[in-house]
Design a protein around this nucleic acid. Structure first.
Lengths: 234, 234
DNA sequence: TCGGGGTATTAGACCGCTCTAACACCGGTG
DNA sequence: CACCGGTGTTAGAGCGGTCTAATACCCCGA
């Protein structure tokens, strides 16, 4: 398996699973507009802060990461690598749902493991088999090489204005349990719902499929999309 | 991704890719009747003899490998682990051919990388999707948990008697180029051919599909099967 | 202004994989 | 019998990942 990795080796960096995970996570986090600190990254990667500190130092030495004011950002070069990892991850998620038949909430962890082992050749076969998809099952855009890639998370359902329509575009996939719950309810990319009412700190009431649903803030913060202003409904 | 591995952790051993590869290789080599020495294993794994020496020492300390007279054999416990790795490898090969559409000669290296990353859950989905296959595309039996597994390599085409029929059951998959060539010719599991003539050190002449073919010894040593004694043809 | 809590890094340690170089052993041959 | 080639192991080193414990830093509040 080292052969597959070595084909991705570059700039003296050994593309191990932990470093690839770090690059991908920094990419997604910054794409979402978040600042990436050592501790935030450590939490996401499930390792201790010193481990991340050392990793970031190495990534910076290899020119993949820029460190300013205790924040980490990807250099253009690092972003290129990260995009490849993200592409592998999201393509695999799509494959696992559409071909293998896994549920959307099951695929993140699987893709997380497989993304480091899949070869470029196999990935291209999968891409072709799926007919070059542009988005994964959670609505996340799949980067294509040679493409300007925008993450574009839109607004969070948690921040949506009461009384308007909201079109779900992306659902964060980190928390499998929450994702499974949203999936069960039918909150998936493509759904348009009406934001009815927001209790202070309480759940957000929304309507879709002719029924009212209450969603806690821990859920509505995971749902991203676009507010649709339909004047005819006003 | 460590989560997936840790679910397979046992007896204090960290199931890293190199150790899993070693276990699988010892399993297949001994199943074929070969003796496993440090240097043979090093050649198969593509690492130096000292590396193997250290790995075998560790495997022996963990009770997975027995060392007698500079030969390595798997303990029952080690064989259990190895069978799981072999199962993952062969199931993945079958999947990659039947579902993804890769050619048989392409799948060994891919499966070699993926077998360390695939979770038990995903593997079972794949198994079900393929309808619980018993053999991979090269004719190798797929171990099933709770099954007495026999490798049963039969006789090599290189050793087959001249004048008889020979039914191909398995084709070794280590060498992708050789496998691609045999595949092109049509020498795949299930084929029955007639052994015509053996030149001393030269190629073996065989007949199938109404045509005669010459196969070098480097190829006929990779083809395993069963000699079929058909008296009516005599 | 001093202290405390949070954050980041460094220090020190261990594991596993890998290499080269050196050494040990064993068998055959001159 | 002594040497030589093959095989196997040990020694020593480096890298990457991981941890805990200790240290450095920074800001805010008492």
């Amino acid at each position: 398996m080292e052969d597959l990795r070595s084909s991705r080796a570059c700039c003296g960096l050994v593309p191990t699973a932990p470093t690839e995970d770090a690059l991908r996570t920094i990419f997604v986090l910054t794409g979402r507009g978040d600042e990436v600190s050592t501790s935030v990254l450590a939490r996401h990667l499930g390792v201790s802060p010193p481990t991340v500190s050392i990793m970031l130092k190495r990534l910076a030495e290899h020119g993949l990461v820029e460190r300013t004011d205790h924040r980490a950002t990807l250099t253009p070069h690092g972003a290129g690598h990260a995009r490849h990892v993200v592409r592998r991850h999201r393509l695999l998620e799509t494959f696992l749902v559409r071909v293998v038949g896994l549920a959307p909430h099951e695929v993140h962890d699987e893709a997380d493991a497989l993304e480091h082992a899949v070869s470029d050749r196999l990935l291209d076969r999968i891409d072709a088999l799926l007919d070059r998809p542009t988005h994964d099952p959670h609505g996340d855009p799949i980067p294509r090489s040679g493409d300007a890639h925008v993450e574009g998370w839109g607004t969070r359902l948690a921040d949506a204005a009461v009384g308007g329509e909201f079109r779900v575009e992306r659902v964060q996939d980190w928390d499998a349990a929450a994702l499974a719950h949203l999936d069960d309810l039918g909150v998936v990319p493509g759904l348009t719902l009406v934001v009815l009412e927001r209790g202070p700190g309480g759940p957000l009431w929304v309507r879709f499929d002719g029924r009212d649903h209450a969603l806690g803030e821990s859920l509505t913060r995971l749902v991203h999309g676009r507010e649709v202003h339909v004047d005819v409904l006003a």
